[in-house]
């Protein structure tokens, strides 16, 4: 199962990079969302895929009695999803605010912080 999923990760990243090459900020963000999912999926695959039970220890036992799935990648992904969710939500809110204030989503036209022709001193 790892092989096909690895290909999926590759496709997700390729699509994400393609979207991120756009000038439009919203496309850029969607590209980031795709890559973020690709990263989570990569962690998931890194934990190896097995047909196994959930990693729950039955009552009264110290360790699982049967073969269980690797719980660590799942914990990592959960954390990563939460963080990614927060970051992307912030980015979305920021983009909305930028669109309202600057009136454009084209990054090439956002030149307030770095003017194309900075003020030069004319004479001493």
């Amino acid at each position: 199962m790892e092989g096909p999923l690895a290909v999926v990760v590759g496709i997700l990243i390729a699509t994400g990079v393609y979207l991120m090459l756009a000038r439009d900020l919203l496309h850029y963000l969607f590209g980031l969302v795709l890559i973020s999912n690709a990263a989570n999926l990569a962690i998931f695959i890194a934990g190896r895929l097995t047909r196994a039970s959930p990693p729950l220890i039955p009552e009264g036992q110290e360790a699982p009695q049967i073969v269980v799935a690797n719980p660590l990648p799942q914990a990592l992904i959960l954390t990563a999803i939460v963080i990614g969710f927060g970051l992307l939500a912030f980015a979305l809110a920021l983009i909305a605010q930028v669109y309202r204030e600057l009136g454009t989503l084209d990054v090439d036209r956002m030149r307030i912080a770095e003017p194309v022709r900075p003020k030069r001193k004319k004479s001493l």
Partner: peptide, 20 residues
């Protein structure tokens, strides 16, 4: 906002690379 959007955009890439 102008400077912030560039900071956010490029640092998110770093985050994703690190996670991967």
């Amino acid at each position: 906002l102008d400077g912030g959007i560039k900071y956010v955009a490029l640092n998110l890439v770093s985050t994703l690379l690190m996670l991967t």
